[in-house]
Amino acid sequence: MESFNEYHLDPKQFPFLNSLQENWQVIRDEFTHFIHNASPEELKFTYDVLGPKSKTIKTKGSAQYSAFGILFQGLFIEEYIQVHQIQYPDYAIDEAVNKAVTLREKYFSNLAKVIEKVNFVEDNILRNVYFGTFHPGLDIKLHVNYNPHMNRGYLGLIVPEGDVAMKICHDKLYWHEGEFMVLDHSYPHCPHNYTNYDRTVLVVDFFKPDWSRKEAIQFEKEQVAQRMEDNPYSLGVFGKSDKAKEEDFIKYGLAHQLEWDKALSVSS
């Protein structure tokens, strides 16, 4: 039986996630259909425009993390682009908006319907929804995601067997297909994928129920304004506050480094 604590949370506390979990195979199929059938131009646009970018979170070596989504800070991506007037090197704002709508309607209509349903019933509790893929060999440096007003749920879509895990504080947690892992990402963590296959989840950020909605929205507004000023391509998801503190590395870094060394020695 799985144990939970202040940073590894029981998904049953958040029944509004059930709509996404019940549709996990449909959501996975939309993702795989897109990956296998999108044109090179559609793929380029998706990762250039629909993927949140971080200047702070680092990986070890050359392995990569890729992400793209349709909902950011409670807005579908085209609305988010318009509100923040994001300037892209290869796309005018109106072009980016139109392409984003077309892609969602073409490839992710079922996911969009589930998001709309949940947010209609739950007063826009879902803030960010995006696909996150750990490519083989990925090893992310210890960091935090300073979002004290939100929790982060991971819905397993494609999870290979083997050592692909989230190290958070002193725990090592594993994703499972069709199930949510829910974390408070304000705690130091560093995930990895030591398998030879991609791992893909649906990342779902949502307001903490114990925050008043007014306070959560105000905090988000101020935080996102700062993040967008620092890096408009973060889509408000990542920021300078993602850096782990020196004391976090002292407290957790050694244990994680030993795990890295052990795993790397086995794989080499």
Rank of each mutant, 00 (worst) to 15 (best):
M1R: 04
M1A: 10
E2W: 03
F4Q: 00
E6P: 14
E6I: 14
H8N: 12
H8Y: 11
D10A: 08
P11Q: 04
K12D: 10
K12H: 11
P15S: 14
F16Y: 15
Q21W: 04
Q25N: 02
V26P: 02
I27V: 11
E30G: 01
T32A: 01
F34N: 02
F34D: 03
I35C: 01
I35A: 00
P40W: 07
K44A: 05
V49Y: 07
L50D: 10
G51H: 00
G51L: 00
P52W: 03
K53A: 02
T56Y: 10
I57G: 12
G61K: 07
A67S: 14
A67F: 04
L71F: 07
F72Y: 15
Q73Y: 10
G74V: 09
F76W: 12
I77P: 09
V83P: 08
I86D: 13
Y88S: 00
D90Y: 02
A92K: 11
D94M: 05
T102K: 14
R104Y: 00
E105H: 05
L111C: 01
E116M: 10
V118R: 08
F120V: 11
V121F: 14
V121W: 12
L126W: 14
R127L: 14
V129N: 13
Y130A: 11
P136K: 13
I140P: 09
N145S: 13
N147D: 14
P148E: 06
N151V: 05
R152L: 00
G153A: 06
V159G: 05
K167G: 09
C169A: 14
H176L: 04
H176Y: 03
E179C: 01
E179H: 00
M181I: 03
M181C: 01
M181V: 04
Y187F: 15
P191M: 02
N196E: 08
D198P: 04
R199K: 06
V201W: 03
L202W: 09
L202F: 06
V203W: 02
K208D: 12
K214T: 15
Q218D: 12
E222C: 00
Q226F: 07
R227C: 08
N231E: 04
N231G: 04
Y233S: 08
L235D: 08
G236S: 08
G236P: 06
V237T: 14
F238L: 06
D242S: 07
A244K: 00
K245V: 09
E246M: 09
G253W: 03
L254T: 08
A255E: 12
A255C: 03
Q257A: 15
W260T: 10
D261Y: 05
K262E: 07
V266Y: 11
V266W: 05
S268I: 10
S268K: 13
